[in-house]
Amino acid sequence: MSKLLEVKDLSIAFDTYGGEVQAVRGVTFDLDEKETLAIVGESGSGKSVTAQSLMRLVPMPPGKFAGGSIVFNEEDLVEKSDKQMEGIRGKDISMIFQDPMTSLNPTMPIGKQISEGLIKHQNMSKKAAHNRGIELLKLVGIPNPERRIDQYPHEYSGGMRQRAMIAIALACNPKILIADEPTTALDVTIQAQILDLMRDVQEETGTAIILITHDLGVVANAANRVAVMYGGKIVETGNVNEIFYNPKHPYTWGLLSSMPKIDGDDEELLAIPGSPPDLADPPKGCPFAARCPYAMKVCENHMPEYTHLSETQQTACWLLDERAPDVEAPESAMVGGTKVHE
């Protein structure tokens, strides 16, 4: 069975004053129909750039494709013209952004922002699009949609705006929904509601979801598979169980250790010391080497290749080389009381 989306060796760089920033450096992953893939990693690891490049929304210039392909429907999106992309955006692939406060046009009523896509992709009349907009608002759980549809974003709360954003993204029944940290800007109770909503919507419409987050808690509850990004690369992928119960990459360990445990006391929140590599001058070897407590001499100069640990799990770390010392995941990375969905 062919995949819905196959990203191969994708590289994206930005020209800046400080030189070329290699934001994404050879990322490979794929997406099946109806599944949810989570991309996790800390700030600056290239998650958003990866996600936006799937829709060709990375501003170019200063950005540019430095290689790789994005195959969707047997066609390489990298090769498409802007005009051709317009037919795919919003129709086949759509996106929800991190900050609902800034991602809606403040001077346009919500209803109009929903119907635009419908009019463009489904040739609906204004009237029909308006009615469909009301349905969509109902679907995403906005009370009183008939009245709400003519309001402006500032009349909505943060959570409601994100719901409206989801309604916009879902308007044309896309095959892929990319959600770039859809809950980061919201408070905890709303976060859970939005995630529930996304899961419900997925069940109802069958969209595949790419969920970007730096919160492993969110991943546990929402994703089937996980890709861990660091320094513009995917350092480990696997299904949820593998990533949570059998992680092999020290960075994944670090992420798991920094996750609050349900039973543990929250004192034990272990942040990973140090900060991510400068992508304007990326390290030659493993991007995590400067912060990795297990780093070896080889890590500095040679990028580890992927070790296939199972059908689904791949990890890029020299520790998996047979010459490396045996290292166990630290106690703190054990998931313990965390509930893993499914």
């Binding site: 929304l57 317009e86 996106m95 952004f97 346009m108 463009k120 992709h121 993204a169």
Partner: peptide, 26 residues
């Protein structure tokens, strides 16, 4: 460069609509 322009683009609207309908008014 704002987010809502990205949103507008992500809906598949053409460059012109994005620039003038969403951009200019703001």
């Amino acid at each position: 460069n704002s987010d809502y322009i990205k949103t507008a683009k992500s809906k598949g609207l053409g460059q012109r609509v994005v620039t003038y309908k969403h951009g200019l008014r703001n």
